[in-house]
Simulated assay, not measured.
Amino acid sequence: MAEIQLRNLSKRWGSFVGVDNFDLTIADREFLVLLGPSGCGKTTTMRMIAGLEEVTEGEIWIGDRKVNDLEPKDRDVAMVFQSYGLYPNMNVYDNIRFPLKVRKVDKSEHDARVMKAAEMVELTDFLHRKPAALSGGQRQRVALARAIVREPNVFLMDEPLSNLDAKLRVSTRAQIKNLSHELQVTTVYVTHDQIEAMTLADRVVVMNAGVVQQVGSPTEIYDNPANTFVAGFIGSPAMNLIDGHLAGGRFTAQGTEVTGLKGPDGPVTLGFRAEDATVSNDTSGQITAPAYSMELLGDATMVTVRVDGQQVNVKASKEYRAEIGDTVSISVPPEICHLFDRQSGARIAV
């Protein structure tokens, strides 16, 4: 059992708050992703779990043990870093085997465990090579195998894909997803890439400036963002957000008018996803503006307009065509819209 409890966890350096009152239970075998921009506190949280960073306030429990005062080696966690951290003088086999030697695992077990871990990450043909003779993706797989061979209670992964090119990121992401299914080990994964978070996580924790903004499944966070920060961070492209005014169910902003909405009168931010709106070349929609940009994506066409100085993106069909500068009309049905309080940024529940 490797349930992790983070009880009112905080980390401060003088007056600077890195993590503020983080309170969460991570279920046994759950794949939890900490997501947010640089400096939001996600890596600091992971380092506190690992024992690499001292806790200012709060408690960390792994299973039935409070681990605040335990050394990293005694917490039974395995880390995979952004920098692969391989030993250049050792071949792949010995790099993977190294944690077993350090932990004084019986030598009779070494070969079987190394081969099993290498097979899981498809490295059996590269065991004799040194790290310098490997590609970035292969080096990251060695780092994964070195964590797997430990058979820990918890995996901690700190942006393990950020050094890889786009194509390798996709294939290695799929490999991590498959490994988590096979290994069934509690995993905490740090990333600033919301696509990684959406594809890998059982639950996502969105953080900003050391504070948890929202915790939920990828679907919950995508469909019902708690505030404008989450709405503007999750999604590719992020949710369109337009500042305006709501009165009697009618939202108005420069170049925008949407009726049939539910919410209190006053200043609000209207949000909607690019794929939920539609675009045409007439003037029947709620937003009419000149096309600012047209991007062919293969399966769709991304149409961008500027409304009151803000960019608004809409995904049209791959056949849709318009020239930059042509007037386009965007239809925004009220049922696809989200409303947020202008002052606090919080979602308005209706």
Rank of each mutant, 00 (worst) to 15 (best):
317 S>A: 14
314 V>T: 12
336 I>W: 05
73 K>M: 14
202 D>H: 12
316 A>C: 12
232 G>Q: 12
1 M>H: 15
91 N>A: 05
207 M>P: 04
114 V>S: 08
133 A>R: 15
98 F>E: 11
19 V>L: 07
158 D>I: 11
264 P>R: 02
74 D>P: 10
27 A>C: 05
155 F>H: 10
80 V>T: 05
277 A>T: 03
343 Q>C: 04
262 K>Y: 11
199 T>H: 12
1 M>Y: 14
253 A>C: 12
202 D>S: 10
177 K>M: 12
21 N>I: 03
214 Q>I: 11
133 A>T: 10
284 S>P: 02
103 R>V: 07
20 D>Y: 15
45 T>H: 02
257 E>F: 07
91 N>T: 06
311 Q>L: 11
294 M>R: 09
18 G>R: 00
329 S>H: 01
9 L>M: 01
70 L>N: 06
120 M>V: 14
59 E>R: 12
229 F>R: 02
306 R>P: 04
95 N>D: 13
77 V>T: 15
311 Q>F: 12
157 M>E: 01
26 I>P: 03
183 L>P: 03
302 M>C: 15
271 G>W: 07
174 A>F: 14
133 A>Q: 15
133 A>I: 07
39 G>E: 03
263 G>I: 04
18 G>Q: 03
247 A>N: 11
3 E>F: 06
116 K>T: 15
93 Y>R: 09
230 V>F: 10
